[in-house]
Design a protein around this nucleic acid. Structure first.
Length: 161
DNA sequence: GCCAACGTTGGC
DNA sequence: GCCAACGTTGGC
């Protein structure tokens, strides 16, 4: 039941953060540069237009869920893998002539008035099963249950963007 | 197809 | 910036 799935996508705001997404035309951007098979497979097989996504900032002083985006375009090839000048260049893809990676387009829809910090998520007994709070969890795209999604949404006011 | 070496992620 | 945890690579 993919329509019942929710997602969390990590990003480093130094590279591309929620603020950058808001500045894009239509607040929409292709989520390029995912170079992990599990994450790719989620996008390729289970991402559907209309699904909602938490945007999470990692590698910052206070890692946190910043806002919400929606899937507006389903998986298509990530061509940055074929561009030797790109940060996301992938030699193996170039050799086969076809990108082994894919991407989706997401559109920002709302931000949390107060970002939901990793610290607060970790200390919340109700979220003990959430992937993000598990030690050593590096997966950059993670599924959430509707229950987890709704609970996290209840932790701070949402402001449309 | 094992597994050691290597590269990357991401909290701290 | 450190480093533990994890994923990928490539020799055998």
């Amino acid at each position: 039941m993919t329509e019942d799935l929710y997602w969390l996508m990590k990003t480093e705001p130094d590279t591309f953060g929620f603020e950058d997404l808001l500045k894009r035309p239509g607040k929409t951007e292709g989520w390029e540069g995912v170079r992990n098979y599990q994450a790719r497979n989620f996008m390729r097989d289970q991402f559907k237009v209309g699904q909602s996504v938490f945007i999470y900032h990692s590698r910052v002083e206070e890692p946190a869920i910043i806002g919400i985006a929606k899937v507006v375009k389903e998986a298509y090839p990530d061509k940055t893998a074929l561009d030797p000048k790109s940060d996301y260049f992938d030699e193996k893809s170039l050799k086969t002539g076809e990108s082994r990676w894919c991407m989706v387009d997401v559109k920002a829809v709302a931000r949390f008035k107060k970002p939901i910090t990793l610290k607060s998520l970790k200390s919340d007994a109700k979220l003990a099963d959430m992937a993000l709070v598990k030690p050593g969890q590096r997966l950059s795209i993670q599924p959430l249950s509707p229950k987890e999604w709704n609970y996290v949404c209840s932790l701070s006011e949402l402001v449309p963007v």
